[in-house]
Amino acid sequence: MREKGFTAMTIQDITDRADVHRGTFYAHFPDKFALLEQSIRDKFRHLLGREIPPDAGWNPGHLRVLVRTVLEHVRSLYGRCSPIDTVNPLFERAILDELGELLQHWLERLRADRADWTIPVDTMALMTSWSIFGAAVQWSKTYDDISVDEMTDRIIAVLAEGSGLTKKCNR
Score class of each variant (00 low, 15 high):
residue 168 K to V: 06
residue 133 F to S: 03
residue 20 V to G: 08
residue 128 T to G: 12
residue 85 D to K: 12
residue 40 I to K: 05
residue 94 A to W: 12
residue 81 C to S: 02
residue 114 R to P: 05
residue 108 E to L: 14
residue 46 H to L: 02
residue 59 N to Y: 04
residue 9 M to R: 07
residue 129 S to C: 02
residue 50 R to V: 06
residue 156 I to T: 04
residue 18 A to W: 11
residue 31 D to S: 10
residue 102 L to T: 06
residue 50 R to P: 03
residue 25 F to D: 00
residue 44 F to C: 00
residue 125 A to G: 06
residue 89 P to C: 13
residue 31 D to L: 08
residue 112 A to L: 11
residue 22 R to V: 10
residue 6 F to W: 07
residue 150 E to K: 14
residue 80 R to D: 05
residue 145 D to Q: 12
residue 29 F to E: 00
residue 94 A to Y: 09
residue 31 D to T: 08
residue 6 F to S: 03
residue 133 F to A: 00
residue 156 I to D: 02
residue 154 R to K: 01
residue 36 L to Q: 04
residue 141 K to D: 15
residue 93 R to Q: 10
residue 116 D to V: 01
residue 51 E to D: 06
residue 154 R to S: 05
residue 138 Q to A: 11
residue 157 A to L: 12
residue 105 H to Y: 09
residue 92 E to G: 14
residue 123 T to E: 13
residue 120 P to F: 05
residue 126 L to Y: 15
residue 128 T to M: 11
residue 87 V to N: 01
residue 90 L to Q: 08
residue 72 E to G: 05
residue 105 H to E: 08
residue 105 H to V: 02
residue 85 D to Q: 13
residue 31 D to A: 10
residue 86 T to D: 06
residue 114 R to V: 02
residue 59 N to Q: 01
residue 10 T to Q: 03
residue 45 R to F: 14
residue 166 T to N: 09
residue 39 S to E: 04
residue 57 G to Y: 07
residue 88 N to A: 14
residue 71 L to I: 01
residue 140 S to E: 08
residue 101 E to P: 02
residue 153 D to L: 01
residue 23 G to N: 13
residue 164 G to W: 15
residue 165 L to F: 15
residue 169 C to W: 12
residue 160 A to C: 01
residue 162 G to M: 04
residue 75 R to F: 06
residue 82 S to K: 09
residue 33 F to L: 00
residue 91 F to E: 00
residue 114 R to I: 03
residue 95 I to P: 04
residue 124 M to W: 10
residue 51 E to S: 11
